[in-house]
Simulated assay, not measured.
Amino acid sequence: MIRAALNRLIGMLTVMLLVVTIVFVIVRVTPGDPAAVMLGPEATAQDIEDLRARLGLDGSLIEQFGSYVAGIAQGDLGQSIFLGQSVGTALWQRAEPTFFLTVFSLLIAMVIALPVGIASAYWRGSLFDQTMTTLAMLAASVPSFWLGLLLIQSFAVSFGWFPASGYGGPGTTLLERLHHLVLPAVTLGVVSSALIMRFTRASMLDVLNDDYVRTARSKGMTEWRVVLKHALKNALIPILTVIGLTAALLISGAIVTETVFGLPGVGNLIVSAVLRRDYPVIQGALLIVAGLYVLVNFLIDMLYLLVDPRVRY
């Protein structure tokens, strides 16, 4: 198990090195002078030179890459041009809404998808199965921004049950802030539940007719124990995979949802940075999101070893 973990850790570090290289190249292949692009057409030659020096663009490519990697190794993601603070600080200050939004959305998606997927597989071909499959296809095809606007109109404007936007003021309690996240979390959770539900159904269908399931039934075990203990346990590998990928996708998918609901999270920060050509913030956000993708996949690989001991070999 330790050897498998080390192999996956080495692979994770290799992927992150490739990501760092790609992020470094993105700014350098920008048409024209990157500093001039960031500052806009009204910038003076002196302003451009000053910014080039701040960003380390006045050295050779090898020197720039070395300085960039060394800064990342020390936790320095650069300095935001417009915010007047480090990129790491800017991302950290906006991490809370994105973190809670991702966690709540994933919980909602799992609460919806896992029971429905298991039940659809158990009652395969029934009216329930056909209805849930149709709803899953519909949920997967609905744009998150449209569903968010629909929820705002219904539950915020018409009924007034939830805030339409924002995350509360500086003195707002955590409970009130979580209240602001209900509609965004439902928006992301419903859309994300479709993929998890379909994978759960497909995985359960693969194992429900296997020999060990029939053997468990022949021993007189209750049906719920056969389905949940024997069938579900052996179907968990692909389900864990899609849950991990969904968690990673929710982080990047929060960009649109945060913009619709006016949440001051990382997604909103990225949109603002793109509009203002604040490349250091864009680079830092890309690295963080890519790192989270890699970390989630690493954790899912480790869960494989716990769920199915055969993976160790």
Rank of each mutant, 00 (worst) to 15 (best):
I2G: 14
I10T: 13
T14F: 15
V15P: 02
L18A: 15
V19G: 02
V19W: 02
V20P: 12
V20R: 10
T21E: 10
I26T: 09
I26K: 08
V27C: 12
P31Y: 10
D33W: 12
D33N: 13
I48Y: 10
E49Y: 13
L57W: 00
L57C: 12
D58S: 04
E63F: 08
Q64H: 10
G66F: 04
S67M: 13
F82C: 13
G88I: 04
L91A: 02
A95W: 02
T102K: 02
V103H: 05
S105R: 05
L106V: 08
L114G: 03
V116A: 01
A119T: 04
W123P: 03
R124G: 02
L127Y: 15
M132K: 07
T134W: 15
L135T: 02
A139G: 04
S141Q: 06
V142F: 11
V142E: 06
V142D: 08
P143N: 01
S144R: 11
F145M: 03
L147W: 01
L149N: 12
I152P: 07
I152Q: 03
S154F: 15
G160Q: 07
F162M: 10
P163H: 07
S165Q: 13
G166T: 10
G171C: 05
L175P: 00
E176M: 13
P184W: 11
F199L: 14
S203G: 00
L205F: 05
V207K: 03
V207Q: 04
L208Y: 03
T215H: 04
R217T: 07
G220P: 09
M221I: 09
T222P: 07
I237L: 13
I239E: 00
T241G: 00
L250D: 08
L250S: 05
G253K: 06
A254H: 08
F261S: 02
F261N: 03
G262C: 11
V266G: 03
A273V: 00
V274K: 13
V274A: 14
R277G: 06
D278Q: 04
Y279Q: 11
I282P: 02
L287A: 01
I288N: 11
V289D: 10
A290E: 07
L295W: 09
N297M: 07
N297P: 05
Y304E: 01
R312T: 05
